[in-house]
Design a protein around this nucleic acid. Structure first.
Length: 425
RNA sequence: GGGGAGGUGCCAGAGUGGUUGAUUGGGACCGCCUGCUAAGCGGUUAACGGGGCUAAAUCCUCGUUCGCGGGUUCGAAUCCCGCCCUCCCCGCCA
């Protein structure tokens, strides 16, 4: 959520931000109009309420019955006018809220201008593209051959876009999760295990609702929704709280499965485990003071990089341009790992500083030690990392000519000492 | 799922339809007092929204908020309805 004061005072800045995102700036004018109406109605209705409060107190003290009755009759009329104006005000506020809640965050001035993902900017690359003296296989061949992935079973029990991990495949994913969580703990994050279903207000707070309702799974009887990312429940942890300045920053990490309905376009990413309706992810999340968020953001990017580096992956950092920036993001870096089998860079992490955008929605503030007004915290989220793609990168990078896969050294303690996975039979 | 109790400020805990935004404790903070500490004395102690004064306000003023949402009333923490949550007992269960 943007600050209404910003729209009111610097509408051109907001219009420009929308244009940079390839969006129509017209809602700004509607917001200004509704904001004007809102304040106008507030002034009217609050004036009447002040009068009513005053006279009601007088009535309480009056002795003369006829005088008293006259005042009561007079106030009855005032009450009716207040009710009518309140209804009017509610309507205006609902419409304003609807518009505001669908307005995206302002891009950071440093975000490169661009119309779509083709204009994202590679800002760093680490490692060399590995060379093989054989044709590297994609994971959708390696996985089944090694007994690590079973696509048929997934489709049979849940439909297209689902798969089953088996044996060393399931264990390797679990090893990655456990190792990543432990790494993040060493990096200073506190591990959280959260509900995988949340109330709609939490999704609103994180910026998923109302705009992205179509991408979410929900219980058909209750107000419970499957989380599309751990970012959602983690944002909700401090909803409606006023934190002490001394408590910040808060660094959390959590493993959750993620559920996304997304209408997958036919013919794109249809093979393998790169994109599905359910996937696992280890997430990092920070609540911090406004002045600290740029540095905390950079640190989180470095924390995510460390995961790639310790796994021995070749990766690069891609800064999203204004046209590709997510709804709530102020600035975003994607980390992409090279997967030689599928021959593409896989987005294994996306780290965003959302500024106070989520904090405004979720009402998460902090109080300065010297007192004064409360302020909204800044929140930062990042994957550390997304599991299916990390699994792909590990399998495809560590494959051998005989179709086996070597386990990266850092994961071996979680693999029961297994060093290499060999084809079955 | 069934039965019972309850949700008030940072915490505990009062509250009669009418100067109750809310008694009183505790904590915290600011003064005073004190050789130091303790004690004592006085004071302060919410959030959000609108308007005003301003360079800007932690300044003035109005409004809203006693779990949430409705209703009754000139006026609701207080009465009525619905919902949510917590605690205790019973049942069921990994």
């Amino acid at each position: 959520m943007l600050d209404i004061n910003l729209i009111r005072e610097e509408p051109d800045l907001v219009r420009e931000a929308l244009r940079k995102r390839q969006l129509d700036p017209e809602p700004v004018d509607q917001v200004l109009e509704l904001d004007d109406q809102r304040r106008n109605l507030i002034q009217q209705v609050e004036g009447l309420k002040a009068e009513r409060n005053l006279v009601s107190k007088e009535i309480g003290k009056m002795k003369d019955q006829s005088e008293r009755q006259a005042k009561i009759d007079q106030m009855r009329g005032v009450g009716e006018r207040i009710d009518a104006l309140d209804i009017n005000l509610r309507e205006v506020e609902d419409r304003l809220e609807a518009l505001m809640s669908e307005m995206p965050n302002i891009p950071d001035p440093d975000v490169p201008l661009g119309i779509d993902e083709s204009q994202n900017v590679i800002i760093k690359a680490v490692g060399k593209l590995p060379e093989y003296d054989f044709e590297p296989q994609p994971h959708w061949d390696l996985g089944p051959a090694l007994g690590m992935i079973n696509f048929e079973q997934g489709v049979n029990i849940a439909g297209s876009r689902f798969y089953v991990l088996s044996g060393a495949g399931a264990r390797l994913q679990r090893a990655l999760i456990a190792w990543m969580l432990d790494l993040h703990i060493r990096q200073g994050y506190i591990e959280k295990y959260t509900p995988f279903m949340v109330k709609s207000e939490v999704l609103y707070g994180a910026g998923q609702l109302p705009k992205f309702a179509d991408n979410l799974y929900r219980d058909h009887k209750e107000d419970l929704w499957m989380v599309p990312t751990a970012e959602v429940p983690l944002t909700g942890l401090h909803m409606d709280e006023i934190l002490d300045e001394a408590a910040l920053p808060l660094h959390y990490t959590a493993y959750t499965p993620c559920f996304r309905r997304e209408k997958m376009s036919a013919g794109r990413d249809v093979r393998g485990i790169k994109r599905g309706h359910q996937f696992d992810k280890v997430e990092m999340y920070k609540f911090c003071k406004a002045e600290d968020s740029p540095a905390e953001f950079e640190k989180m990017v470095a924390d995510a990089e460390q995961v790639c580096a310790e796994l021995g992956l070749t990766y690069r950092i891609n800064q999203l341009c204004t046209g590709d920036l997510g709804f709530g993001a102020h600035i975003t870096y994607d980390i992409e790992a090279w997967a030689p089998g599928v021959g593409e860079w896989l987005e294994v992490s996306s780290v965003s500083n959302v500024g106070d955008f989520q904090a405004r929605r979720a009402n998460i503030r902090y109080r300065l030690e010297e007192g004064g007004r409360t302020r909204f915290v800044h929140t930062i989220n990042g994957s550390g990392l997304g599991l299916p793609r990390t699994l792909i990168a590990v399998m495809e990078n560590y494959q051998q000519v005989d179709g086996s896969v070597i386990i990266p050294p850092v994961l071996r303690p979680w693999m029961g000492g297994i060093v290499q996975i060999h084809p079955e039979g």
